[in-house]
Nucleic acid binder design. Structure first.
Lengths: 168, 168
DNA sequence: ATATAATACATTACGTGTTATATAAATAGA
DNA sequence: TCTATTTATATAACACGTAATGTATTATAT
């Protein structure tokens, strides 16, 4: 097996490595979201969570809250509006601003997600992180290894089995 | 200031957060690479480092070593070949494989990068990580804060000043 | 009042990742 | 040997981030 250069490069390629880990995590979270029938990319949920927690926000405020560029948010909003999960009215004082709010469907989706997939993802990821301790690079190595060894979905599944056994 | 939802979501949005941190790190590393006149995106350097360390590799081997999909590597190779940093010959036994190797220019670039920008990036990032300890999320929070507070470039600059002072 | 600057958002163009699939070469089985 | 499968790479289509720029709208200064 060829070696993992990005890992070997250590601090030098830390950016590549973070992106790589992030993509893995998101991809595995996506599996859980899809399984729950939440028909959205994982990347869009922070936006929904922001509106859910903070109430109506302008485009720029969302961008700041989510830590994504404003064009990125605008694009996410196009999709979320098409799916009827958010709406906007441009009628307040400053007509440049476009306040966004969750629709009823959007609120319901957030509630549903929170009870189902979000809880599972949260638990699975927390489970991975639980054991991590010490220097960052070691933690990342352990994290990657765990992700490779058993996916978030697998963790959720085995967790479910555990619970069944416990109940039995 | 609107709050940072991704941070607040904790383990739930860890994927988004890793990607975000990775992008920041890469963007800041890019500044240092550009300053050094290395005319390449930061993301391409792991590929060059792989060839430098491991010698000629096929496309698939590079993909494995770098941890990026094979189509991603093929695209990077197109650019690197155009810039004359790598070359390939398809003449060995198995004519499906396309062994890639550094050109002389490529080797020189790696050497130059290693002595200049890479060393700086390595030092700057290691400097950030030095202080990190404890649970992962705390470390990430500290990491993000540090990145926000002073960029890699700024760290390099102040390091250089330190050295000047030390010499004086 | 009116020209100028700043702000909020949309659009464009681009980089880079992914999956799915096409193609060519090697290998295996009949 | 001829067909089927596997393997290595290329290509296509798409997701999603960015920076740069356009376009209204609002604020400021003369």
């Amino acid at each position: 097996m060829t070696q993992d250069i990005v890992e070997q490069l250590g601090h030098l390629a830390l950016g590549s490595r973070f992106k790589r880990i992030g993509e893995q995590l998101q991809a595995q979270a996506q599996v859980l979201l899809d399984a729950e029938g939440l028909g959205l990319p994982a990347s869009h949920f922070p936006l929904l969570a922001a509106l859910d927690r903070l109430g109506p926000l302008s485009v720029g405020e969302i961008a700041e809250a989510v830590g994504v560029s404003q064009p990125g948010i605008t694009r996410q909003l196009v999709r979320l509006e098409i799916e009827g999960l958010v709406k906007s009215q441009r009628l307040s004082g400053d007509r440049r601003r476009r306040p966004i709010m969750l629709t009823v469907a959007g609120s319901l989706l957030v509630t549903r997600a929170r009870k189902s997939a979000w809880a599972k993802i949260e638990t699975a990821v927390a489970g991975i992180c639980e054991e991590l301790d010490g220097p960052l690079l070691n933690q990342l190595a352990a994290l990657e290894q765990q992700l490779k060894h058993s996916s978030l979905a697998a963790r959720v599944a085995s967790k479910t089995r555990d619970r069944r056994h416990a109940r039995a």
